[in-house]
């Protein structure tokens, strides 16, 4: 009896706190039916926002994955003075407010920033333009691949890589044949987290973007301007699309659990 009551309480709580928001998104997006909702997606500014988001995400994911793999290799396979400091540094963006993560790039590349005017004279625009958005996104997504790889690679130890070295494998062969296949689940998860965060980043991008519709608006920024412009259906349709993309990516993380049962060590 108590147990049944606790179950109801748990699911009630989950329903109220966690399931209500996605339901609201759908309800608002479809408040005038499905056709008006789909129609809002044909807006050129909306399409530009989707394209920009994908572009920024790809750049952030590719660069931070390369960095993340090399940094995890460095930080788990070598013990050198300064390693502890680097371990703290690579996790730092996680504890910095998104707005501050955007602000720092204005301090460097904004009109009043250190190098902003110099770059401006050379015709290079970083703040309030796409490069600024990319920099801010790279900053906030920097830790994800490293921090998922490090605990796993630390736990796996160096034995397999040492065996590979003695068998004559070089750095890239070890990385691609031994380390990354062994850590593929963690790598996959880290890449997905990077993707989700890159797609959905709002605060940091908002500060450096300049909010020019069709040019420097990513999906979250476009949602904001639609919402503030009382275009509720359009805002929530875009929000539904973005939330769907992001949730798919996040829930894909549990995919390897289902697929790789046969190969993984059961213990």
């Amino acid at each position: 009896m108590t147990r049944f009551f606790l179950w109801c309480a748990t699911w009630g709580l989950i329903g109220l706190v966690l399931l209500m928001p996605p339901a609201v998104i759908l309800a608002e997006a479809l408040s005038h039916g499905i056709m008006p909702a789909l129609k809002t997606l044909q807006d050129p500014d909306g399409i530009a926002a989707i394209e920009l988001t994908l572009e920024v995400t790809v750049v952030a994911v590719v660069l931070n994955t390369i960095f993340g793999i090399l940094a995890a290799w460095l930080l788990t396979r070598f013990r050198f003075p300064g390693r502890g400091l680097l371990l703290v540094l690579v996790e730092l963006p996680l504890s910095i407010s998104p707005v501050v993560s955007g602000l720092v790039w204005l301090l460097l590349f904004g009109a009043q920033g250190w190098w902003g005017s110099a770059l401006d004279r050379m015709g290079i625009q970083i703040a309030f333009a796409v490069p600024g958005i990319i920099l801010a996104t790279l900053f906030v997504t920097l830790p994800y691949v490293v921090r998922t790889l490090i605990p796993l690679m630390e736990q796996q130890g160096r034995d397999a890589e040492e065996a590979a070295t003695l068998a004559g494998a070089g750095f890239w062969q070890i990385l691609f044949r031994v380390t990354l296949p062994g850590a593929r689940v963690a790598l996959f998860s880290g890449v997905l987290m990077t993707t989700a965060r890159a797609m959905g980043e709002f605060g940091a991008v908002s500060v450096v973007s300049g909010h020019i519709p069709g040019l420097t608006e990513t999906m979250p920024l476009h949602i904001e301007s639609l919402y503030n412009g009382y275009q509720t259906v359009a805002a929530f349709t875009m929000a539904a699309l973005l939330a769907f993309m992001s949730m798919t990516v996040v829930f894909l993380r549990s995919l390897p659990d289902f697929m790789n049962r046969t190969r993984e060590d059961p213990s």
Binding site: G157, D159, A160, E162, A163, A164, T165, L166, A167, G168, A169, R177, V178, P181, G182, R184, R263, E264, D265
Partner: peptide, 21 residues
């Protein structure tokens, strides 16, 4: 270690077999 590659066989205590191969 590169100069030893292939000339020295080493068996680890943990065996260090590559689990994905």
């Amino acid at each position: 270690i590169q100069e030893r590659a292939g000339k020295v066989g080493f068996v680890f205590q943990s065996y260090a077999l590559f689990p994905h191969m």
